[in-house]
Design a protein around this nucleic acid. Structure first.
Length: 281
DNA sequence: AAGATCACCAACCGCTCGAGC
DNA sequence: TGCTCGAGCGGTTGGTGATCT
C-alpha cells in the first residue's frame, strides 16, 4: 500500500503554525457555503496557504460549532477516566461520548491532568498492596482482577451518568437539535464557565447563520470526529440510521444494574458493545 | 529582575483504513 | 487484484504563558 506523501509536504508556501482569525474566517466562510467535506479542495478554493489536513484539523478541533472549551467538569472527568479504562486510548471513540469535546482536547486533558491524577492515586494504592504482591499474578488472579476492573469501571460510569441525570448527556440527535435550537451550546449549560471556540464575533455570527440554514451539514461534519470506530459500533448495535452511543451505553449500564450488584460479572456473558471485545485489552 | 523549569494545548506527523479506479 | 490517495486517528512536538528559584 503506497502511502501518499503528506499533503503538500515540501511544497513551498504552505503555511504552518497558529491560525490567524482571518484564516479562521476564511475557512468558516467556505465551510458555511460548502459544508465540511472534500478537504482536499479547501485550500485551493479558499485561498488558504494551508494543507488540507491542517484545515480539517482546525475545523474539527477548534472551529466546528458546539465545541466546548475551558475546564472539564467532574462528570466529564469521571466519564473520560472510565471510558479510557474501557476503550483504551481511542480518543475519537471516547470523544463520541462527550460531544462537546474534541478527541484532541480529551487526549490533551488525559495526558496533562488525568494521567498524573491516576498515577498518584495508583501510587497510593500500590504502596498499600505492594507488600502482598511480590509475585506476578496468576492467570486466574489476573482474570479476576480484570473482571473487577470492568465492574468498577461500569459502576463508576453509571454513577457519572446518573450524576448528570437532570441534564442527560446528549445523544447523537440531541446534540444536533440542542445545538441548532439554541444556536449556542452554552445556553443550556448549568455547569462551569465555558468558552466556545470561534470566539471571534464574525466567526460565531457566520456559524449561527449557517447552523440555522443547514443542520445536515453539521451532522456530516460531526461524523468526522465522531470517529469511524464509533459509527461502526453503532451499526453493530442498532439497525437504525440514527447513532445514539449514549443510549446503548445507558442501556448497557442499566441492564447490568438489574443484575445482582454484588455479583461479579461473568466475562463470558459480558456483552461488550464492540465487534471484537478483545480489542479492549 | 531574570533565567530556568513546568504546564498546557494547538498543531503537526506519520500510520492505517477504505473507497475508487 | 493491486495501487493510489483522501480521510481519520493517535502520538508527539513546539510555542507560550505561568510559576519557581
Amino acid at each position: 500500500m503506497g502511502r501518499a506523501p503528506c499533503c503538500e509536504k515540501g511544497k513551498e508556501g504552505v503555511k504552518k503554525g497558529p491560525w490567524t482569525p482571518e484564516e479562521d474566517l476564511m475557512l468558516v466562510s467556505y465551510i458555511q457555503e460548502h459544508g465540511p467535506n472534500n478537504w482536499r479542495t479547501v485550500p485551493s478554493n479558499t485561498g488558504l496557504m494551508r494543507c488540507s489536513k491542517s484545515c480539517r484539523l482546525r475545523w474539527t478541533n477548534y472551529l466546528r460549532p458546539g465545541i466546548k472549551r475551558g475546564s472539564f467538569t467532574e462528570q466529564e472527568e469521571k466519564l473520560i477516566i472510565h471510558l479510557q479504562a474501557l476503550l483504551g486510548n481511542r480518543w475519537a471513540a471516547i470523544a463520541s461520548y462527550l460531544p462537546e469535546r474534541t478527541d484532541n482536547d480529551i487526549k490533551n486533558y488525559w495526558n496533562t491532568h488525568l494521567k498524573k491524577k491516576l498515577a498518584k492515586a495508583q501510587d497510593g494504592t500500590e504502596r498499600i498492596t505492594s507488600n502482598n504482591n511480590h509475585r506476578s499474578l496468576s492467570k486466574g488472579q489476573w482474570e479476576r482482577r480484570l473482571q473487577t476492573d470492568i465492574h468498577t469501571a461500569k459502576q463508576a460510569l453509571r454513577e457519572a451518568l446518573s450524576l448528570d441525570e437532570q441534564k442527560p448527556l446528549p445523544d447523537g440527535d440531541l446534540i444536533d437539535s440542542h445545538f441548532f435550537k439554541t444556536g449556542h451550546a452554552s445556553s443550556s449549560g448549568t455547569t462551569n464557565n465555558v468558552v466556545y471556540a470561534s470566539s471571534t464575533e464574525n466567526i460565531s455570527k457566520l456559524l449561527q447563520g449557517w447552523m440555522k440554514n443547514s443542520p445536515n451539514k453539521l451532522r456530516a461534519g460531526r461524523s468526522d470526529s465522531g470517529s469511524s470506530q464509533g459509527s461502526v459500533r453503532c451499526e453493530s448495535i442498532s439497525s437504525h440510521d440514527e447513532c445514539k452511543p449514549l443510549s446503548w451505553l445507558e442501556n448497557w449500564l442499566f441492564e447490568d444494574s438489574t443484575a445482582g450488584q454484588e455479583e461479579m460479572p461473568n466475562l463470558d456473558g459480558f456483552q461488550l458493545p464492540l465487534d471484537d471485545p478483545t480489542e479492549f485489552f
